[in-house]
Design a protein around this nucleic acid. Structure first.
Length: 712
DNA sequence: TTAGGGTTAG
């Protein structure tokens, strides 16, 4: 863990403390209690009223408002809007009706429309709009923007088209352009942007931000370039922040640097603008320049939660998960309250470290803050528990999520698939359909992989057809990879090959690799050789394909072919990825290679393995030498199998953890069949659950059996 | 004295 983060922190300037300092109130009440004259009294009441509103003390504001003799219409307006922001529409309407009719002006009518929209009551908003005596462009823009803000584009368009052309000002056009972008209608936004009679800085910023949000970051940067180069419209910090966001998304370092220079030039980089700082931190992080990101962070005076989260996320993006979690801890120490985004990023870093213990600590902090059942934190917790090997906890968190979205359902379905709980995955999908949540391409990937890992071929065929034809989901190459995988694993190797050959897009090396893997399971050398040939044409350095083919030859004891593959690997400079397994204990990762003797507890680990070997023999275990994969003497292969990396990690785990606790081991390659047999028995001997996550899935070993049912 | 349009982290 890093002892010191590479940036300086000025705690006096954190947002929380700045806000608190503002809250120190002046004793205004003394002014009311001792008035010298009627006019002084009214002035004091007005002042106190405004002060209460400013500090969001709505009841106190109302009490003072009631004492003001003949309040000015502007005070009525402020009062009703305050009620709207408190989601109290009936009281806002009450105040509106109290405005004397001779002073009720267009501004108060517009404010009441706005108040209805804030409270989500569009019927009242439209009724007021119809009833008001004089509409101006602000009345129209308010209602158009209101509809767009809740995705009701058709109604917004109806008002926009009904609005007299002469009344449409630049703000109205801007509202439409921005609304189209926010609702994924970027082509309509571009059409209006070209049609509008004049464009100001907000028009340009809207289209730049909109293009960026809709996956057109490169075009956004072109628009920014045109704005600066050809329009003469004065640029704002918001425009530059949007441009920087686009540069960050496509990691365009050159464009981002130019924008940073502009920010300097216009004086936006003095450290007081959190938007500028957060966008700079993110930009440098996306360009893999964490030193620069840290420098910007250190120079930021106004460090709010977004700036902190930008740094935390940036470290995560760069696989510096320990540093990310250190930032999370630091922000808490500086009284910056983490929000859902901070938790999401911190939990992602726990996944990156595969560190369940840290994940549980962050989960506890989330519970304290009441964020556990929110959809963002809940989804991240589901992923964290699932990827750290605890699918039961993932399901528990999932059930608690208040309003589940498609990501929640996908996360839990994919989690069940990875843990081999295929039936659960399918049951959850049924519930998802019943709750009316629309599935997407990730749902199908999750379902197909659940079927693949549980041998449910017919179900997979149904899903593939249902998603492809009935709900017209565009099938991606990922889906074909899954379908070839499930066909192959279920023994339909020829059909899998036929599907790979007949795909609407050309199969990539991943498709052929899963087919080759299935050939390894079902010992189909003919298809394997054809699949391997395809892979070597596309990816000559694919070590996994060489290893799979070599293993296939080895399991058939065709040692001359094994030697040929090895020579070919050597000739092409392909290096086999060494197998390694690791276990995380108290924040430390203990990693082992096959026959490793570098760990400080090596002697004890090998003693434990010998003891386990004796117990295994007593239970009738005989090493399966087809997994030795080397042309060596039988005695030697037995020894090599006994010291595979996962066995060393398990032996170490047994020595270092309390009896009865679940042991979780990670492996970079697939666990071999012989180790799989041995670990089933080891779990029985030591009477513990052993979870092994290999490159394919999670295996839960308990009482002599594995959750995968020997099917993986 | 009160009303409308653009922004950062995930």
């Amino acid at each position: 863990m890093p002892k010191k983060l590479p940036f300086s922190i000025s705690p006096i300037f954190t947002t929380t403390q700045r806000t608190n300092s503002k809250c120190r109130t002046t004793p205004f009440t003394t002014l009311i209690q001792n008035p010298k004259s009627s006019s002084t009294s009214t002035t004091s009441l007005n002042f106190t009223f405004l002060n209460h509103l400013k500090n969001q003390r709505i009841d106190s504001a109302r009490a003072v408002f009631n004492k003001i003799p003949s309040p000015h219409v502007s005070l009525y307006t402020k009062m009703l809007l305050a009620y709207a922001h408190n989601n109290n529409l009936s009281e806002a309407i009450n105040i509106f009706h109290q405005i004397p009719s001779n002073t009720k002006d267009t501004i108060s009518w517009n404010s009441m429309i706005k108040a209805s929209i804030i409270c989500g009551d569009f019927v009242t908003a439209v009724k007021l709009f119809d009833e008001m005596p004089h509409r101006n462009s602000i009345s129209w823009t308010t209602i158009i923007h209101g509809f767009l803000s809740v995705g009701r584009v058709v109604e917004a368009e109806r008002f926009f088209h009904a609005m007299p052309y002469a009344d449409k000002d630049v703000a109205t056009w801007n509202a439409m352009v921005n609304g189209y972008c926010n609702n994924g209608r970027v082509d309509d936004a571009l059409r209006l942007f070209r049609q509008m009679p004049s464009r100001d800085v907000i028009s340009w910023t809207s289209i730049i931000a909109g293009l960026d949000r809709n996956g057109k970051s490169y075009q956004a940067l072109i628009f920014l370039q045109n704005m600066v180069g050809f329009t003469g419209v004065e640029i704002s910090s918001t425009t530059l922040v949007c441009g920087l966001s686009a540069a960050a998304k496509i990691s365009d370092f050159y464009a981002g640097i130019q924008i940073h220079c502009c920010m300097f030039k216009f004086g936006y980089c003095c450290g007081f603008d959190a938007f500028v700082s957060a966008s700079l931190v993110t930009f440098y992080a996306c360009c893999k320049r964490m030193d620069d990101a840290c420098r910007v962070f250190g120079e930021t005076v106004c460090k709010n939660v977004v700036v902190w989260t930008a740094l935390l996320t940036g470290y995560g993006l760069n696989d510096k998960h320990m540093e990310a979690l250190e930032v999370f801890g630091e922000m808490m120490r500086f009284n910056v309250v983490p929000n859902e985004s901070s938790f999401t990023s911190a939990l992602n870093s726990c996944v990156g470290l595969e560190d369940l213990e840290k994940g549980r600590v962050i989960h506890a902090a989330g519970i304290k803050m009441g964020l556990e059942n929110g959809v963002y934190v809940g989804n991240s917790l589901v992923v964290m528990y699932s990827k750290c090997g605890f699918i039961g906890d993932a399901l528990c968190v999932f059930r608690g999520i208040g309003e589940k979205n498609v990501v929640s359902w996908n996360s839990v379905i994919v989690g069940c698939a990875q843990h081999g709980c295929g039936v659960w995955a399918l049951t959850l999908f049924k519930q998802m359909l019943m709750e009316g949540v629309e599935s997407d391409e990730i749902t199908l990937t999750g379902l197909l992989s659940a079927c693949s890992r549980s041998g449910m071929l017919q179900k997979a065929r149904c899903f593939f057809e249902y998603f492809g034809q009935k709900i017209s989901l565009k099938l991606t190459i990922e889906h074909y990879v899954c379908m070839v995988d499930v066909l192959g694993r279920c023994g339909e190797v020829e059909e899998a090959e036929a599907l790979a050959m007949s795909m609407p897009v050309e199969a990539n090396s991943m498709v052929w690799l899963v087919l080759l893997s299935a050939c390894r399971v079902h010992s189909n050398l003919a298809v394997a050789e054809r699949a391997a040939k395809r892979i070597f044409e596309m990816e000559p350095g694919c070590s996994a394909a060489y290893v799979l083919l070599s293993n296939l030859y080895a399991s058939s004891r065709r040692w001359s072919e094994v030697a040929r593959i090895r020579r070919k690997m050597k000739h092409n400079g392909v290096v086999k990825q060494p197998g390694s397994s690791w276990i995380n204990l108290k924040g430390l990762r203990h990693e082992f290679r096959s026959a490793d003797r570098s760990h400080p507890l090596t002697e004890k680990i090998y003693e434990k393995l010998e003891w386990l070997g004796v117990k295994l023999n007593e239970l009738g275990y005989v090493p399966d030498q087809k997994f030795a994969l080397h042309d060596v003497e039988i005695e030697q292969t037995e020894e090599m199998l006994s010291y595979h990396s996962e066995r060393l990690a398990i032996a170490f785990g047994l020595l270092s953890t309390s009896e009865g606790s679940t042991l979780t081991v990670m492996k970079n390659l697939r666990v071999c069949g012989d180790c799989h047999n041995a670990i089933k028995l080891v779990a029985k001997i030591v009477d513990r659950e052993i979870v092994v996550r290999d490159s394919s899935r999670f295996h839960h070993f308990k009482n002599g059996i594995c959750s995968c049912g020997d099917y993986w």
